[in-house]
């Protein structure tokens, strides 16, 4: 349950920034685009605990985002909100990359057409780009959500594994195995497999190219 709450919150939290970033990466050329893209990919390749440690340092009392710098406490360390941040950061690269591919598949000339019909940039994005890319974007959301569900390293580093509060599916499996509760571990394992299986199935179905939807022939 904590897992679902954390993963949902993480997905919602990163969704808008991820879509905007992905759209920018897909559409415009700008200085530092490759650098940005590489930075965004880092959580995919870094050890999750490294990301967690980095966040911990950022958020600790004296860190750049800590109580003493900001003047108030974000209250993220050892809380479920901290787990949300960790899961969000870890899910971001997957969401951005999948969404970027989805946006790239939308014919930019369709967006131009919408502009000539009286829609400004934002209206064009909301009313045409998003619906045209909807399959790929849904896939991105599902992949991001499952990544958030399964996140372990960064989450335990920043939020710990407090049963009922910050203990997620991933950390619960680890805890069950540590204390030798194999029944518990098997049940959790089964849940994890089912969630992952369904997610990939749906995501792959959505990501399959549908020419009539993307507008490219």
């Amino acid at each position: 349950m904590v897992s679902l709450k954390v993963a949902t919150a993480a997905t919602v939290l990163i969704l808008v920034p991820c879509l905007l970033l992905a759209y920018r990466l897909a559409r415009s050329r700008f200085r530092g685009k490759r650098l940005l893209s590489t930075l965004l990919g880092l959580p995919l390749v870094l050890p999750p605990t490294a990301v967690g440690y980095l966040l911990l340092k950022l958020l600790s009392a004296r860190g750049p985002l800590g109580r003493e710098t900001l003047g108030f406490d974000l209250d993220l360390i050892l809380t479920w909100r901290g787990a949300v941040i960790a899961a969000g950061v870890m899910a971001m690269p997957l969401v951005v990359r999948t969404a970027q591919v989805a946006f790239e598949a939308v014919d930019p000339r369709l967006e131009m057409m919408a502009r000539t019909l009286g829609y400004n940039r934002l209206q064009t994005f909301v009313r045409f780009t998003l619906p045209l890319a909807r399959r790929g974007l849904l896939a991105a959301i599902i992949l991001g959500f499952t990544r958030a569900v399964g996140e372990f390293g960064a989450t335990v580093t920043i939020a710990g594994s407090i049963p009922g509060q910050t203990q997620t599916l991933a950390s619960a499996i680890y805890a069950a195995q540590q204390v030798g509760d194999h029944r518990e571990a098997y049940v959790l394992l089964a849940i994890a497999v089912i969630v992952g299986f369904v997610a990939i199935l749906v995501a792959e179905h959505l990501a399959r190219p549908h020419a009539e939807d993307s507008g490219r022939t």
Binding site: L110, L117, L132, D213, G215
Partner: peptide, 20 residues
Amino acid sequence: VPPERRGVGYVPQDGLLFPH
């Protein structure tokens, strides 16, 4: 003036209908 405020009707070669 951005395209949305010029009030033109534009029809390209391939029509560019919205597939969705």
